[in-house]
Design a protein around this nucleic acid. Structure first.
Lengths: 349, 349
DNA sequence: ATGAAAGCGCTAACAA
DNA sequence: TTGTTAGCGCTTTCAT
């Protein structure tokens, strides 16, 4: 029963289009287009009639025609390193919320910290003619993202802290958050504060480490690299790093971390070592992912407002859309200490 | 410096296209197309030359033309209820892995369990002319997804356990997993096993509860609804449900749950109540999300192979693509008990 | 082995 | 206020 009817050239089944609607409504397809796009130059009456037909026919327009015509797709690209870190899906959620309101789509790509995948993701973004890209994989080499600029696509990076032609940046105000946390820990009597950081060699990791160092200085506390370990933003790496840190002769009484996953790893290492949190050691996370309140003990963490961050990204992208040839803005997202139960008074000497 | 040159009709800046390449290579755009698509009917020499030009020009094709022509977009849709449950992003990751290999895109939509959002997501899927949809929001009313069938788009649901015309299903084999877990708990001496389930009224919740009940029967253990609570697949809801369960006069010695997030909530409630895990009570999760090994204690859980699941979804979609007018397959994904530290021998009477 | 050309659905000029 | 029409980039007959 395989019907092999080929009329002329159209190879697959035809779908409805504005013509179909127009024919049925007794108007031209231009009018249908105008109605759908809400242009004012249509008689009230006609518009309503057309809308009724659209309803009847359950007509759904085909945006690929518009994409073809204008080279823009009402889609934004989001490139993230790792969807298994809940921070990114949570951001995605907020980003989506803002965009879908505006009838935009999101094209998500993950890089898994591979240069090759990034190059590939960038290519996909360009192919799909995205209106803008948010790049959260700041660890990457600049070369891979150059095609974005060649194609005049606005881009915002997160936490690269550099802007240039066609590219803005949304930076997380680590400084504030770390300062607030250090002050808080100091008030609790902590004097030796350690740090489990991110992958070495990444700008973003260095920025965070420096912010921590700065915060210690501001509070008049001593910084020693003996209390610092690099990890990889993930649980297992952080666990290992913390275990190594525990070998230091005089231990810190509090640990700050580069993100919540790292804090989870630290908690696990401490638990395995039989060190009680917070009575023997305090732990502070960073990010404020939803699950940070679900672990034991609920994590004191420096939270970022994802909503704010999504809005800033859009803001930067919007500014660039007006003129891709100028340098993008450098915006800041604040962080805020969220006190829960993984921190407490420093143990007595 | 706003250049306002309008030549004829083209409103935005032109981009490269196959013509550009063709001109430069001294061939026709048809040949360029054939080279790009790897058709065999091109002279080796010509093909290489064209490829060189493509390279030189850094040409990137525009798939929206193809989408327009053929009404298919090389994109699959994925509709999930909740990106903040790590299970879904983790699945997305595997799904993406399989698809990107095949030069496909993913269009993600979240429903947040809202019927309206689902309707909207479905519309977006149709607009973008996706080649198929994976629907993980099985809690939803059927009406909202009907347009998918009207538009002949293959669909796979996850864990609806019903198939029909144009729609397959990938079911998670809860039965196996629960049976395995119950047997394991029984061997540890547990006789009273409680259950914290999913949102009431959802097929998927009922399936899981029944699987649990069945597993108890098979093991010759008593089932009592006093030891069962409905929650909402999330931490807070599960925490509350567990707290309520603790009010029962003779408590269960082990708790099984409907997903890992629920287990996290249970752990938190137990911790707050001062009940030690696993010495006083054992807890079993479901899903095997990455973070299940990061909590304290590391969670014994019934793990699903996400890779397997992604492959099954594709398999079902592939079968349907061959013929959307027939009913889709009903495939099964296995689950497997992962023993960690949240389970132990039943406490002495 | 290659080229010419039609047409996918939509929208903005332009005409009426 | 509405209609006519060209053309976005690509693929695929059909012709050469």
């Amino acid at each position: 029963m395989n019907s092999k009817k080929k009329k002329k050239s159209t190879p697959e089944q035809r779908t409805q289009n504005m013509r179909t609607v127009a024919l049925r409504a007794g108007v031209s397809s231009a009018t249908v287009s105008r109605v759908i796009n809400g242009l004012p130059s249509v008689k009230q009456e006609t518009a309503e009639h057309v809308r009724k037909i659209i309803e009847e026919l359950r007509f759904i327009p085909n945006p690929s025609a518009t994409t073809l015509k204008y080279g823009r797709s009402n889609t934004y690209g989001l490139i993230v390193p790792d969807l298994t870190n809940p921070f990114f899906p949570e951001f995605l959620l907020h980003f989506e919320q803002v965009l879908v309101e505006n009838d935009h789509e999101i094209l998500v790509a993950t890089t898994q910290s591979s240069e090759e995948k990034l190059t590939n993701s960038v290519r996909r973004m360009i192919m799909r003619r995205v209106d803008g890209v948010v790049l959260m994989a700041s660890e990457m080499d600049t070369r891979s993202i150059e095609p974005i600029f060649d194609h005049q696509i606005p881009m915002v990076t997160v936490d690269r802290r550099r802007v240039h032609k066609g590219c803005g940046d949304v930076a997380i105000a680590f400084e504030n958050g770390f300062r607030e946390a250090v002050v808080y820990l100091k008030e609790l009597g902590h004097r030796r504060i350690g740090f489990v950081g991110g992958t070495e060699g990444l700008t973003t990791s260095e920025v965070r480490l420096q912010a921590f160092q700065q915060a210690l200085q501001n509070a008049g506390l001593m910084f020693t690299s003996r209390f610092v370990r690099a990890a990889d933003y993930r649980v297992d790496g952080a666990d290992a790093a913390m275990s190594s840190l525990l070998n230091e002769p005089d231990r810190p009484t509090a640990i700050m971390t580069v993100n919540d996953l790292t804090a989870f790893g630290v908690l696990r290492a401490l638990h395995r070592a039989g060190i009680k949190v917070p009575s023997e050691m305090s732990v502070v996370g960073f990010d404020g992912i939803l699950l940070s309140s679900a672990v034991q003990p609920p994590l004191t963490t420096i939270a970022i407002s994802l909503k704010d961050m999504a809005n800033r990204c859009l803001e930067a992208l919007g500014k660039l859309k007006a003129d891709v040839s100028k340098r993008g803005p450098l915006l800041l997202v604040n962080s805020k200490l969220l006190i829960r139960e993984s921190t407490g008074p420093a143990p007595p000497k």
